[in-house]
């Protein structure tokens, strides 16, 4: 039994400051929107009420079910004067929720994907680098785990849940925003 190690552990525990405690929410909505747009004063909040036809078309394109026909998104100019469309998606990974932000470019490619809240054990959360795999991707038949989206050992369900969520948002953008405008 290495009692020196125990002493070190006890010492480290004593150093823990309550204010350093983190939780499973990494970033809230306001902070996330500011990280995309900078000044959020001119950001528009919009809600779409999908028709049955639109919902069916989105599901066909995304190859996944949509949970709701009410969709809220945010659009505005980023600091570099380009337009961004921001969506927030919540779904179930294994038994617990995750919420992530998807930022789309006007040409329907992905600008970024960022995890905002993750309630599963952190072992199931891919590293930040993995989320960069989505950048500049467009919706196509290879936009699936183990194709354009690499698998992550130990995080299979998260990889699938995020990928399906991003597919759904990209399809929604194509069907309900680009085509409608």
């Amino acid at each position: 039994m290495n009692f020196h190690l125990v002493k070190i552990l006890v010492f480290l525990c004593g150093l823990i400051n309550a204010e350093a405690a983190l939780c499973q929410v990494f970033k809230n909505q306001d902070t996330a929107l500011k990280s995309v747009f900078g000044n959020v004063a001119d950001v528009q909040r919009k809600t779409i009420f999908l028709t049955d036809d639109q919902a069916a078309q989105i599901q066909k394109v995304a190859k996944t079910k949509i949970g709701s026909k009410i969709v809220t998104y945010y659009s505005g100019l980023k600091p570099d004067s380009t337009t961004a469309y921001v969506f927030f998606e919540t779904n179930i990974v294994r038994t617990k929720r995750e919420t992530f932000m998807v930022v789309l470019n006007p040409d329907a490619t992905v600008a970024s994907v960022e995890m905002l809240a993750f309630y599963e054990p952190r072992d199931y959360l891919p590293r930040e680098n993995w989320f960069k795999l989505f950048t500049n991707k467009f919706l196509n038949e290879n936009f699936w785990p183990k194709r354009e989206i690499h698998a992550v050992s130990g995080a299979t369900l998260t990889v699938r849940a995020v990928t399906l969520g991003v597919r759904k948002i990209m399809a929604l953008y194509q069907v309900a925003i680009i085509e409608e405008n």
């Binding site: 809230n28 927030f88 919420t99």
Partner: peptide, 20 residues
Amino acid sequence: VEILTQELEKQKLGEVSEPI
């Protein structure tokens, strides 16, 4: 309707919609 959609969004996002 706007209030309703805000409430729905808040429910969907959970703690992410709350100030940290």
